[in-house]
């Protein structure tokens, strides 16, 4: 059933976000042309128009980011906690599937927005008359050369793979935590009969305060001086790996607490108006 929920979730969100992506990419193409033409002698009106295109392009990218975050919040709120909740919570699916479908779709859209923004920037900046993409790429060091340099510094390939893996996990967990922070706050706030939105904001702030204590505690727990005492770059990387590992553990615990609060709020405290 999770697959079916995801299908409908992507359908509901895609109808808003895909046109925005299309507009951003179209604006990127226009911005590319504008940048080329701004080098020439132009009338003030044309110059103003080309600058306006660039401003619209930047605003478009900001809009894409804001709308992705807004959709993450709005879909959970309207689809599970408002009138549409009567439809969603009477489907023969578990609360877990409902929460996961919202979260997976939101994370996918965050990744998509990131890719679209970078693609647009690439389209605008890189492919200019005076930029030869082929030459630019040829100037980048090959993987073989990178490995050679790393080996000389005493860094093993496994260390880098682990570091990259940990970083990717940290980013993913960060996204999961962001979603669950909003979900848990809304889920707990809507257990009450009145002032549901206000209480959701209160829960959001309370969770933020509670987790800031965790983060501060984590800061004390880490021996930052061990980084100074690392004698080689490879040693430093291993110390950083340790830091990220502990941060992942902490993020994992926080995410589990938020997930539990979200599910319990929806299972035991659901109180649709």
């Amino acid at each position: 059933m999770l697959g079916k929920l995801l299908k409908h979730e992507f359908r509901a969100t895609g109808r808003i976000l895909l046109p925005i992506y299309g507009a951003v990419i179209a604006l990127a193409a226009l911005a590319n042309v504008s940048i080329r033409l701004l080098d020439r002698e132009l009338s003030p009106i044309l110059r103003f128009l080309f600058v306006l295109v660039l401003v619209c392009f930047v605003l478009g990218m900001i809009l894409a980011g804001v709308m992705t975050a807004w959709m993450m919040i709005k879909r959970f709120y309207t689809n599970l906690l408002k009138d549409e909740g009567y439809l969603m919570h009477t489907l023969p699916v578990s609360v877990h599937a409902l929460v996961w479908s919202k979260m997976i779709a939101a994370l996918c859209w965050f990744v998509m927005t990131f890719l679209v923004v970078w693609l647009s920037i690439g389209l605008t900046v890189l492919i200019q008359n005076n930029t030869n993409l082929g030459e630019l790429l040829a100037e980048l060091p090959s993987w073989h050369e990178i490995r050679q340099v790393l080996r000389e510094m005493g860094i093993r390939g496994g260390d880098i793979t682990l570091l990259l893996g940990e970083t990717a996990m940290a980013i993913l967990l960060g996204g999961v935590m962001t979603c669950l922070h909003f979900y848990a706050a809304m889920s707990l706030g809507h257990m009450f009969s009145e002032n549901k939105l206000l209480l959701s904001v209160v829960f959001f702030v309370l969770i933020s305060i509670m987790f800031s204590f965790f983060t501060t505690g984590y800061g004390f727990y880490i021996h930052w001086d061990s980084l100074d005492s690392a004698e080689t770059v490879a040693g430093g990387i291993r110390v950083v790996q340790g830091f990220i590992g502990k941060a992942l553990l902490m993020e994992g615990i926080q995410a589990a607490v938020l997930y539990l609060a979200t599910v319990l709020g929806l299972k035991k405290g659901l109180n649709l108006a």
């Binding site: 509901a12 109808r15 009138d83 549409e84 009567y86 439809l87 009477t90 023969p92 699916v93």
Partner: peptide, 20 residues
């Protein structure tokens, strides 16, 4: 629960379908 929801057809007292 999930099992009973497959057996029950429910019409709430409000408009509950996505408007779009």
């Amino acid at each position: 629960g999930s099992e009973t929801k497959a057996l029950v057809s429910y019409l709430p007292d409000k408009e509950y379908l996505p408007e779009w």
